[in-house]
């Protein structure tokens, strides 16, 4: 125990002295800079001419916004953007509904086999992703063959396999479990069943984790590439990532165009993130607590 410090010194600890503040800001500033540097670089390259993009300049001498038009046209984004939105919305709504229901049951209803089922599902998170490609391809093929809707080259193959998400269930369960039991008891006295309790009490309290799932799933679905390529044969349902990849294959050497194309695909994610970031950071944070 070191008790020799004077009270004056102690006050420096968590109160904010100016010197300390400056150091803090410098460190945070450097952190922010490092976080953002690749972005600056990406954006600035995307408006450069090709020669500049390959040179050693950090800032474009003149702005070539036509790169964006060129990338948009050559990657056929107008064709693929709508597909991406549809795929993402369908996946998200399915995933949300199913995950909320399941997470509620896992969090608040005691039923035989609860832990067993949950653990088994959770362990699938530890399996390398490559294992799933071929069996799932076979499954969607067969589901399309024996049901009346075609799956391959259609929205079911692109969306339904991703509607069951153990990660979402896991995250929501953490939140639903925190809702006080008293609320349920009083709801029950009012004659509300589980579904009503879920819809009227639990969900309004859980906007934040729902946001998290929306953003994370959005990112995941929006960026998926290998699977959509595998299960589509025509451009009808191909998402934007496929368009970008085709374009990058062709324009790989034109970094400025590639960066413009990549930035276009990121924009929707950034928009979603900025609109939800408050709930998002808060709820990510809370989910981490009771891991």
């Amino acid at each position: 125990m070191d008790n020799r410090q004077s009270p004056k010194q102690k006050s420096h600890l968590f109160s904010v002295s100016t010197r300390r503040k400056i150091v803090t800001y410098i460190i945070l500033g450097v952190g922010a800079f490092i976080s953002l540097v690749p972005f600056f670089w990406m954006i600035s390259t995307s408006v450069m001419s090709l020669g500049e993009a390959l040179g050693s300049t950090f800032f474009p001498s003149e702005l070539h916004f036509e790169n964006y038009a060129e990338a948009w046209r050559r990657a056929q984004f107008s064709e693929y953007f709508l597909n991406s939105f549809l795929i993402t919305i369908i996946t998200l709504s399915g995933e949300l509904v199913f995950s909320i229901l399941a997470a509620y049951a896992f969090a608040r209803i005691d039923f035989p086999g609860r832990n067993f089922i949950f653990t088994v599902m959770l362990s699938t998170m530890m399996i390398p992703a490559m294992v799933f490609t071929i069996p799932n391809f076979l499954t969607v093929t067969w589901l399309g063959r024996i049901t009346s809707i075609p799956w391959i080259n259609n929205w079911p193959a692109l969306t339904i396999p991703f509607m069951g998400s153990i990660f979402s269930i896991f995250m929501l369960r953490q939140f639903f479990a925190q809702v006080p039991d008293e609320l349920y008891d009083s709801a029950q006295i009012d004659g509300a069943g589980h579904l009503r309790f879920l819809l009227q009490v639990v969900l309004p309290l859980s906007k934040a984790p729902v946001m998290v799932i929306i953003v994370l799933s959005f990112i995941g679905t929006w960026n998926s590439l290998a699977w959509p390529m595998l299960v589509t044969n025509t451009p009808d349902w191909r998402p934007i990532s496929v368009g970008l990849m085709n374009f990058v294959n062709e324009a790989g050497q034109e970094i400025n165009l590639t960066m413009a194309g990549a930035f276009i695909t990121i924009v929707p994610i950034l928009i979603i993130y900025f609109f939800t970031q408050k709930q998002f950071t808060e709820s990510i944070a809370r989910s981490g607590l009771k891991g």
């Binding site: 919305i89 369908i90 709504s93 399915g94 509904v97 024996i146 049901t147 009346s148």
Partner: peptide, 24 residues
């Protein structure tokens, strides 16, 4: 709309998912 979409989805899913099970 989102609720509508999800309801439609649930229905189609149930329809789609039940069929393969019934086959064996």
């Amino acid at each position: 709309t989102s609720i509508l979409v999800s309801i439609v989805l649930v229905l189609t899913f149930v329809l789609a998912a039940c069929a393969p099970q019934a086959t064996p």
